[in-house]
Amino acid sequence: MTTAPLLSASGLHVTFPGRRGGPSARAVDGVDLDIGAGEIVALVGESGCGKTTLARSLLGLVAPTAGRVTFSGEPLSYSSRALKSYRKRVQLVLQDPSGSLNPRHTVYDAVAEGLRIHGYTGDEREAVAEALSRAGLRPPERFFLRYPHELSGGQRQRVVIAGALVLEPELIVADEPVASLDASVRGEILALLLRLRDELGLSALVVTHDLGLAWNIADRVAVMYLGRIVESGPVEEVLTSPQHPYTQALLSVLPESGGAPVILTGEPPDPSRIPGGCRFHARCQVLASGEADRAGVADRCRTEGLPVLGRRGGVACHWA
């Protein structure tokens, strides 16, 4: 693994205008994140925490309000030509393969679409066949003339992955890549992503709400809450010894955790009205139980904000 990151976000903010002139929603509210060459990073958090918006911003689909994204040391430019070149090197794999694939296109056309958009001049049939083989659909010629409705859910997801691989990207962003699949198929797709990393040196950002998935696939994990990363580090370190109460709560619901699940009260706050102090304090089980009081940090939790967590990882929590 190289020391310089392949993809890097620095001080990233993404805000959306409020309704009827109301306050802006801070979907991403200060994020530093690195992804190294050949590294798989899991971005974890519950729905609405901003992880998909962060992923879209890293892909150049949403321009940041502040901060910047760099790829191979070069700042990302948002001109049409620069983005087209960038998206050849960084590909997206979406959650729902049925929604990602045009039902009127054959598997061959679905995989070849990226080649045609980018003006590929080599042997198209050979490139499509190789991408399908790498994605585990063999012999590939057997799938060329099939339509999405003729495939299983796992096969459809492999076609989506093949469509990303055909351009030989350096990094893929996978947004909940196995959420819509049966449990028996999930392991196969995760094993495929790991094999692609080992064989091709492919980097990946895997967006998920499932810490069990992160444990099985990632080298590093970043836990996101209300627009910020609140804990990050090597996956074994974070998931065997979580420091942030939010990470502890997410882990507590896994069957293998062995303890009683932590039930968080209420919903995540509105990103247009982020509370003062620690942004998790209104739902924090450590604060609610009196443990933060006993540690002498309860007032800081309620009133003192925390700095953006640096790219070296750690935990953003007064109590921790």
Rank of each mutant, 00 (worst) to 15 (best):
A249N: 09
I274K: 15
V286S: 05
G310W: 02
S184R: 14
R158H: 03
V235Y: 01
T2S: 15
V185D: 13
Q157A: 06
A55V: 10
V159A: 07
W215I: 10
S241N: 15
E237H: 14
P64D: 03
T65A: 06
P169Y: 09
P268E: 05
G11T: 09
P169K: 12
Y78S: 03
R146Y: 13
D34L: 01
E188M: 12
R142D: 14
D270Y: 05
R220F: 09
E256R: 15
G67M: 06
E237Y: 08
Y108M: 02
L61F: 15
A183K: 14
Q91R: 14
D29Q: 01
L205E: 06
S252Y: 03
L205Y: 08
L202C: 09
C301I: 06
G50Y: 02
P269C: 09
G163P: 07
P245N: 03
H244R: 03
L6C: 06
C284L: 04
A214F: 10
E236Q: 15
G114L: 01
C301P: 05
V308E: 13
E124G: 08
L192F: 08
V308A: 07
L309Y: 09
N216P: 00
E304L: 14
L12G: 02
V90S: 00
E39S: 05
L94M: 14
V297F: 06
G314I: 00
A37Q: 12
L33N: 04
Q243W: 04
R142W: 12
D182Q: 04
V206H: 01
A183H: 11
P271V: 01
H281S: 09
L287W: 11
L137H: 07
S180G: 03
I172F: 14
G99D: 10
A214E: 10
G73V: 12
P261K: 00
A282Y: 11
Q91W: 11
R89K: 14
L59P: 02
P177F: 05
E168W: 03
A82N: 01
V185F: 05
A316V: 05
R134M: 12
D123A: 11
L137P: 05
A63C: 07
L196V: 00
D175R: 11
I274P: 00
V166F: 08
A222H: 11
R68L: 13
A288F: 12
I161L: 08
R19V: 07
T2V: 13
R134L: 13
I35V: 15
